[in-house]
Amino acid sequence: MVTKRTEHKWGMVVDLDRCTGCQACVVACQAENNIPINTKDYFQQRRAYEWIRIERYWEGEFPNVKARFIPILCQHCENAPCEPVCPVFATYHNDEGLNVQIYNRCIGTRYCSVNCPYSVRMFNYWQPNWPDRFRNQLNPDVTVRTRGIMEKCTFCVQRLRRGEVNVERRGLEPLTGERITGEKKLNYRQMKEGNYLPACVQSCPTNALQFSDQHDETGPVKERFDEANEQIETRHHGGHVDESHTRVYRLFEEVGTKPNVIYLKKVDSFPLEKA
């Protein structure tokens, strides 16, 4: 008998009304994923590595001006434009809804990057370089990528795997180490307690980022994904979705990529008058 891996479908919800642009997610991601230090030169050459970045948009002019923030990361699209263009199958979709990059296969054509509407794929233009002491901090669960290959957000797959191993295979409660007697399926509480949520989500001080299995009744994203999927179904069948009464949307929905990241609209109490 061979046991099958427990089925999961991961998803993230980003609440723009909570996001303040504080950068906690950005630094947490860099620490977790062995991202090279972004030097001044990298920024000046427009080649900084940020698997998650906070984009800031200005609206209006002084004194009626607003700054809007949006965290942008790999959307882990169901219909990912980056996947079919890879000539060596270095990027593929796994059975848990993750868009995965195989570093060993990548030959650096950068086709995927060109085809990504979200610009979340980073190319290693340089060999990553840390002073020797900083190397002590590198996460042993994450590959250090070499020059010439593509990288991007993985939803911290190494954390998901660690959670699956500890909860689903070993059957241990993350916090207490006690044996689990009931269902051994990694749930939201266990992910939170065991630090198995993606690093950005775990750090986000306003809880603007939420993550769990899309089918997990106990998780914070199921309701939102159900609503978003219903919208897609309605549109697919020619129906109308009243955009002004829902907070749920997907980035560049019209492109048809069907991301596994959902955004919640920013609530605007005093909208600016459009010119």
Partner: peptide, 12 residues
Amino acid sequence: AEDIIKTIAPEN
């Protein structure tokens, strides 16, 4: 920006 960051009125 409105294509990226969508907004909604508080009453909705």
